[in-house]
Design a protein around this nucleic acid. Structure first.
Length: 771
DNA sequence: CCTGCCTGGGTTTTT
DNA sequence: CCCAGGCAGG
């Protein structure tokens, strides 16, 4: 360590442990890195890229795919520190944003304008609703949300509308869900998006796949360009994303320089189509080319009690890649479990504990995070943090760009850039009110449908009453005039003009309520944002659209969701409140995981299936492994949900934390470890030892099978002759079914009972068919 | 065509 | 509880 003649700059590789260094320097060929929580994954990734650049790879030959803009930004910043400013030429970003960037360049090959609009979730839902209406379907049966998910998973599985229509399994599923016409909606949706020059989130992936598939020359171009491909959070990629990655790196004579980094235990996006099958497939797909696998198992983040708890929890999952996460940071504090009577109590108690921790351990606000399963839970904590004068910041929920007043102006701007944008049209046409209501819009839509033209085009030609016609012409003129200048004018000036001439600005100014003023402020903030976009010397994405047009601004914001647009730099020392999902990749000295109740965490949506429970458990694993030194878990016996008080049992996850790692608090003292403590009861149930009740004669009948594995079939599927499982009665055989339609009654013979014959109303029964 | 009341339905996680 | 959307009245 002589720094007298430091010829060599401080070498970053020295900051890595042995496995990390190997993972960072094995640059050639396929590499799989399994990285446990806190194991220095980001460090490996960044140093790997730095290493590539030092070895002479050009930054733009490196493609690094991440899940959030934030992690991409962080990665870039860290690489800049090692190799300097040239790092900003690395293609590092989210799947969606980098693919959008490629698609804009290559749009002409797939019949899209390069300034295509990106539909967000609201646009998608609204379009689906329009289609449902046009097809005269009952929207209480055809729910936009469900259909959106259906379409999304179809796209993610590379199923086109045509394939969908010919897929017996999907059609049957739809029929069973009483929505036999989903395929029709899907087909209409795709053609409407295309006509509108719009892509939804899934299209950004799907269309790129299509492009690479159908245009070998384009595929070749990007294969040559991206000499090294890295994928972060690989466990959260879906089939489609992996398919695209393979298109880029798996072809004849490819050097197969791909490095994927992930942790199967932290896969928490299965609901979005992510599958850890990709990790297994990766091993198979690249097996012929000598995969190098590295496991990062040392946890540098958390103390031992926390790591021990995390290991114990995750061991309840089936099917995982074997690994042994360990820590050398000392035992540390035990985990604290807080039990309160109700949600208000939970809020107060957590705030209370934060105050205590802060003073006892000299923690700053920024060292502390409160993590919850659903964003809706933040409110009570906000309330108490305010009461206790603790500054905080809530992440997630409504982002800046999702606010109504912001979306209103953005819709106009979108329309200016792309007049075909149907959703932007619908949003703007009568906002602010200019007397073009439902009736007129229907006329427009019908003409557009007949002639196969866009709504904007139809508005020009449709027959309207005089007054309405006048209003329509004003609207058309506004958009057309702005459009004429769109490619040349300064984006800020143009946006400002549109804001004024549309009447949106005046409208907001009229509202002097507190919320109204806040809205005006947001509106102004959007304009300010455009202004700084114009003035800023941004180097990012310059090869696509090196200009300062409105189009390029919109493209920049389209995929920013959680982005902190107006960073409140004045106060960064704040407590963090966010969903567990949002917390992935972050760490805090002290973490509170709250609302640990059955049906909340794990969510009732996921409790029905083993896969669902496993994912919830991984989510819980992610939550507790965010903590460096202090981990507090809390739950409430009752909680308001949908305006009703609801009783809650503690989450099963609490029982999976080993007792040795848990602090004895007044709430789990021995004297209180009685049948009255629901956690204790739950623990007992899980371990199979059921506490004997002192009073009453109600006896606990042990379920005949593990309830978490119990998957009842819908009543319609129960038929004569089947063997079925009933939680209370056990295994039985359906002898007879009588009664019709909604009133079917099954006679079932349960062998294990004194009175084996039971007649069961199928409408209410929960029966699982055994095969 | 607009406003305001009312009802009924849904309630997870995110790019 | 909170919202979107339907409907009646202006």
């Amino acid at each position: 360590m002589s720094d007298s003649v430091s010829q060599r700059p401080p070498h970053y590789l020295d900051e890595l442990n042995e496995v990390q260094r190997q993972a960072a320097t094995a640059t050639e060929g396929p590499v799989l890195v399994i990285a446990g929580p806190g194991s220095g994954k980001t460090r490996v990734l960044t140093y790997r890229i730095a290493h590539l650049i030092e070895k002479g790879t050009a930054p733009w030959e490196i493609l690094a795919l991440t899940f959030t803009n934030k992690s991409a930004r962080e990665m870039k910043e860290r690489i800049v520190k090692v190799v300097g400013q040239k790092a900003s030429d690395i293609w590092a970003g989210t799947f969606h944003s980098l693919f959008a960037r490629i698609l804009r360049v290559e749009a002409k090959h797939i019949g899209y304008p390069s300034n295509f609009t990106i539909y967000d979730t609201d646009d998608t839902k609204s379009l689906i609703n329009s289609i449902i209406k046009e097809l005269n379907l009952d929207k209480t049966v055809y729910q936009a949300n469900a259909i959106k998910n259906r379409i999304s998973s179809a796209k993610s599985s590379l199923i086109t509308p045509k394939l969908y229509m010919n897929n017996a399994e999907l059609l049957t599923q739809d029929k069973q869900a009483k929505m036999p016409l989903v395929h029709k909606i899907y087909a209409a949706y795709v053609s409407r998006c295309k006509k509108a020059g719009a892509m939804d989130f899934d299209d950004l992936l799907y269309r790129l796949f299509e492009l690479l598939q159908n245009h070998p020359d384009v595929a070749k171009k990007y294969r040559r360009k991206f000499k090294y491909v890295l994928v972060d959070e690989f466990q959260d990629t879906n089939t489609l994303q992996y398919a695209i990655v393979k298109k880029l790196v798996l072809y004849p004579k490819s050097p197969r320089n791909i490095c994927v980094v992930g942790d199967d235990a932290q896969s928490i996006y299965a609901f979005r189509g992510a599958t850890i099958q990709n990790i297994l497939d990766f091993e198979r797909d690249f097996a012929d080319h000598g995969i190098q696998t590295f496991k990062l198992e040392q946890n540098y983040r958390s103390t031992e009690h926390i790591v021990q708890a995390a290991n114990a929890v995750i061991s309840h999952n089936r099917r995982q890649i074997q690994k042994n996460i360990w820590s050398h940071k000392g035992e540390g504090q035990k985990i604290k479990i807080i039990r309160e009577m109700d949600d208000t109590g939970e809020g107060r108690r957590v705030a209370d504990t934060i105050v205590e921790q802060k003073s006892r351990y000299h923690l700053k606000n920024e060292d502390i995070a409160i993590l919850y399963r659903t964003n809706a839970q933040s409110r009570i904590f906000e309330e108490y943090l305010r009461k206790f004068n603790l500054p905080y910041r809530v992440y997630g929920g409504l982002s800046f760009y999702q606010r109504k007043e912001v979306k209103d102006l953005v819709a106009y701007l979108r329309l200016v850039v792309n007049p075909n944008d149907e959703e932007a049209f619908r949003r703007s046409i009568n906002n602010p009110k200019r007397g073009i209501g439902g009736t007129s819009l229907e006329k427009v839509a019908s003409l557009a449908g007949q002639q196969g033209i866009t709504l904007f085009e139809a508005l020009k030609h449709v027959a309207l009453p005089k007054r309405t016609r006048h209003a329509a012409d004003g609207f058309i003129e506004l958009i057309t005039k702005a459009r004429a200048k769109a490619d040349t004018a300064n984006a800020y000036e143009l946006a400002e003009t549109v804001a004024r001439k549309s009447g949106l600005l005046d409208n907001l100014r009229k509202d002097v309520s507190i919320e109204g003023m806040a809205r005006l402020e947001n509106f102004q903030a959007l304009l300010d944002g455009i202004k700084s976009f114009v003035e800023e010397d941004t180097l990012i994405d310059t090869d696509t659209l090196p200009d300062k047009t409105l189009a390029s601004y919109l493209q920049n914001i389209a995929l920013l969701t959680d982005f902190d647009s107006n960073e409140e730099k004045n106060n960064t020392d704040v407590i963090t409140l966010m969903s567990v999902h949002a917390a992935k990749g972050l760490e805090f000295k002290s973490v509170f995981v709250v609302g640990l109740e059955k049906e909340l965490f794990p969510s009732f949506m996921s409790m029905g299936t083993i896969e669902g429970m496993d994912e919830e458990r991984r989510l819980f694993y992610v939550a507790i492994t965010r903590a460096e030194q202090f981990l507090t878990l809390s739950y409430a016996n009752t909680r308001y949900r949908y305006g009703k008080m609801k009783m809650n049992e503690p989450s099963v996850f609490l029982t999976e934390i080993p007792a040795e790692a848990v602090e004895n608090t007044s709430y789990s003292r021995r004297s209180e470890k009685s049948e009255y403590d629901p956690l204790e009861r739950q623990r007992a149930k899980v371990s199979g030892i059921v506490p004997i009740r002192k009073r009453g004669t109600a006896k606990f009948t042990k379920p005949k099978m593990d309830p978490s594995k119990f998957k009842p079939n819908p009543p319609a599927e129960i038929e004569e002759g089947q063997n079925v499982m009933h939680l209370k009665f056990g295994e039985g055989r359906v002898v007879k079914i009588d009664g019709g339609a909604d009133n079917r009654i099954a006679t079932i013979h349960f062998s294990g009972l004194a009175q084996p014959e039971k007649r069961i109303m199928l409408r209410f029964a929960k029966l699982q068919v055994l095969d």
